[in-house]
């Protein structure tokens, strides 16, 4: 893929050191869940207050990597997600830092009540690691995919909502969540994803990051869609001469509204891209702010009002036009 050296294009000078490569097509790939499990274990080594809860999917979420090192601080409560969040609440109420693991769909919808009325309302220092989010559990189909979790999580007062974009950011999000005092929802991918960020890039909670400056439109994405947006930005430049900026909005709540305003002022058009329903997620959060404070034309890319289905992950993303060509076309049509 061509690297455009125009100063208005390409990675931002100040943020350059955070990024792995500039050739988005040729990035190495790493498993986010393996990175997550390793991060938990490392966290266990440096902080003895960290305890880990699991609802019988430890080999999937990779919380099992923590259990191997710290069996005494690992509690597999069985297939009982509600109880898991309740037990996590009790542990947090006397100073522990619990990481509770399950799939995003169960964390928000089966255990939505303890997540809301117990953890968020009480403001307990529980970290909910919501794995297999979006379409990343692609073959299992709609029951195990999660395209509504951000809508639910970000509606809950007190809850901080993080979406790391790759394996390195997953590690940094775990560390940032542990250092942060209060309930945190971390949306995690099952997938092996291109590594956009350098290992040491950090995870500034509450701050979006400009990964590429634009002039015509800003693509605001989270999770795996950040990579897709970077790819699309290259295609837009090469094929349509559209200068698209890219922001990684890795914290959905609290939302970096200052950065949103800046992007709206700079490019006058905003496109959000998320592996989630367009109802209630990142796009809605961005729109809620902009419509009230700096209205600009917007498009929301994500799943329309439908459930996912079984299939190859990339094929599924293509099906929902969440691949780089699909995003490129939608943005080009929008900017025309």
């Amino acid at each position: 893929m061509n690297i455009n050296m125009d100063m208005d294009m390409g990675p931002v000078a100040g943020e350059k050191s955070l990024l792995n490569y500039r050739d988005w097509a040729a990035l190495p790939r790493k498993s986010c869940r393996e990175a997550y499990g390793a991060a938990l274990r490392r966290l266990g080594e440096i902080n003895d207050q960290v305890v880990v809860l699991e609802a019988d999917v430890g080999n999937s979420t990779k919380s099992v990597l923590f259990s191997e090192a710290f069996p005494d601080r690992y509690f597999n409560v069985g297939i009982a997600e509600n109880n898991m969040l309740g037990v996590a609440a009790g542990l947090a109420a006397c100073g522990k830092i619990p990481f509770a693991n399950t799939f995003a769909v169960f964390a928000t919808m089966r255990a939505g009540d303890p997540l809301r009325s117990l953890i968020a309302y009480t403001g307990l220092n529980v970290k909910v690691a919501a794995s297999y989010a979006g379409l990343s559990d692609s073959y299992d189909g709609a029951t195990h995919q999660s395209v509504e979790d951000l809508a639910i999580a970000r509606a809950l007062p007190n809850l901080t909502v993080l979406v790391p974009a790759d394996a390195h950011q997953t590690v940094q999000a775990v560390m940032a969540a542990a250092a942060y005092r209060g309930p945190v929802f971390i949306r995690l991918s099952r997938a092996v994803l291109p590594v956009i960020y350098k290992e040491e890039a950090g995870f500034p909670i509450g701050r979006g990051r400009v990964l590429r400056r634009g002039a015509d439109v800003t693509l605001i994405a989270c999770g795996y869609m950040v990579y897709k947006a970077l790819q699309a930005a290259e295609m837009l430049a090469a094929d349509y001469s559209i200068k698209a900026g890219v922001i990684d909005m890795s914290t959905i709540k609290p939302l970096d509204t200052a950065l949103l305003r800046e992007a709206a002022e700079e490019t006058g058009r905003i496109v959000t891209i998320e592996e989630h329903s367009i109802h209630g997620g990142l796009g809605s959060a961005v729109a809620e702010y902009l419509i009230q404070h700096h209205p600009v034309p917007m498009r929301l890319l994500g799943l329309p009002d439908v459930f996912g289905e079984s299939g190859d992950y990339e094929a599924l993303l293509t099906h929902f036009r969440l691949d780089a060509p699909g995003i490129t076309k939608a943005v080009a049509d929008f900017c025309r």
């Binding site: 309740g86 037990v87 609440a89 542990l91 109420a93 303890p114």
Partner: peptide
Amino acid sequence: SLGQGLSIGVGLAVA
């Protein structure tokens, strides 16, 4: 929200 307290108690007792 009914049904949650015993889970909290388990967490406290485990801690």
